[in-house]
């Protein structure tokens, strides 16, 4: 039963720093969340999607390669109209790389951001009970608070879990796409021309990941039972969406009562796809005529960027503050 004790031994070493102790919380949380098979599937989807995008940018790079066998094979199989489009695109990229490369990246990143935000929603639904609700249910907050950590350290450690997971799920694939896509292109000037688009993607990604992380923590801390945390998360999105839709009909700022709407507006403003399209149409007459011939009015589903950036940003910051307040209240040991 009991093992033999060799008595008490003192320890005389150097203690780890505060960041290391915060990382201990994050590291354990990441290991705990990573046990979910469904979360692994979501990561696989995100990174397979990133691989496809890398392939797409490799293909774009091939347009600049003289006598590319890949481009030749494609144009031979797609007919004359496709050949003219590809030739036009090649010329456009060669002549206006600062617009074409940036525009392509913005277009792809904008769509990818929407897809990844959906993945983030499902990912949070999977790991939200393991953030704070678990600790509240088992009284673990008392253990954390009695150690060499403050409440803020605990919150930061937990934030690290959500932020790292969502960052690796939504943000890292886009950065990888940009890096590998440019690495595979024949002209390394793509790195330069694609950099502004990356900055936009990182800004949108950081705002999204931070918002999702804080909301996930707030929901997790408000759930009295571990099992109800996921339901709370889904309900919170549905209810906030409904409130924003309803109030948005009466007052213009009402639509920003949903964090999802705020993020969507900020994303559209930063990517500014309609601006890119206008430039492309002005530079390439064939592009304008091709788009005009298509039956749908808005084939690329580009909604013009809303005028104001500050209002959704202020609302988003208010959501962050509210979440932080709720979390810090709930993790008190009083």
């Amino acid at each position: 039963m009991s093992s033999i004790s060799h008595g008490y031994q003192h320890w005389t070493g150097e203690s780890t720093g505060l960041c290391q102790r915060r990382w201990t919380i994050t590291g354990y949380g990441l290991r705990l969340c990573w046990q979910s098979r469904f979360l692994k599937i979501l990561f696989a989807v995100a990174w397979v999607g990133a691989l496809f995008l890398m392939g797409f940018f490799f293909l774009i790079g091939q347009l600049l390669t003289p006598d590319s066998s890949l481009v030749t094979t494609i144009t031979e199989n797609l007919g004359k109209q496709a050949q003219s489009v590809i030739n036009g695109l090649s010329a456009w990229i060669l002549l206006y790389p600062e617009v074409s490369v940036d525009g392509l990246y913005r277009l792809v990143f904008s769509w990818a951001s929407q897809l990844y935000s959906m993945l983030a929603f499902f990912a949070v639904a999977l790991f939200v009970p393991k953030l704070i609700a678990h600790d509240l249910a088992s009284n673990a907050i008392l253990i954390y608070s009695s150690k060499a950590l403050s409440r803020f350290d605990y919150i930061l450690g937990k934030f690290g879990i959500a932020f790292t997971l969502l960052g690796l799920l939504c943000l890292a694939p886009l950065i990888a796409v940009w890096f590998v896509g440019n690495l595979l292109s024949p002209d390394w000037g793509f790195f330069y021309h694609g950099f502004p688009a990356l900055l936009r993607a990182v800004t949108v990604g950081l705002l999204g990941v931070t918002t999702y992380s804080l909301l996930a923590m707030a929901v997790s801390s408000l759930a009295k039972r571990t099992s109800s945390a996921t339901a709370f998360w889904i309900l919170a999105w549905i209810i906030s969406g409904m409130i924003a839709n309803t109030t948005g009909r009466f007052v213009s700022w009402g639509r920003f009562l949903s964090p999802a709407t705020c993020l969507d507006h900020i994303s559209r403003h930063l990517y500014d796809l309609s601006g890119v399209l206008d430039k492309a149409k002005a530079m390439l007459p064939f592009f304008q005529s091709t788009l005009d011939r298509l039956p749908r009015r808005n084939p690329l589903n580009v909604i013009p960027a809303p005028d104001g950036l500050w209002l959704p940003l202020i609302f988003l910051l208010a959501f962050w503050a509210l979440c932080f307040f709720a979390i810090s209240k709930r993790v008190q040991t009083e």
Binding site: S15, T24, K147, A148
Partner: peptide, 21 residues
């Protein structure tokens, strides 16, 4: 009170790390 999902030795190790070891 305990940290959920941990076995005994893992729990004590974790507490030691939180205390700066």
């Amino acid at each position: 009170c305990h940290i959920p999902g941990m076995v005994g030795c893992e729990y004590v190790t974790y507490c030691a790390q939180l205390s700066g070891l």
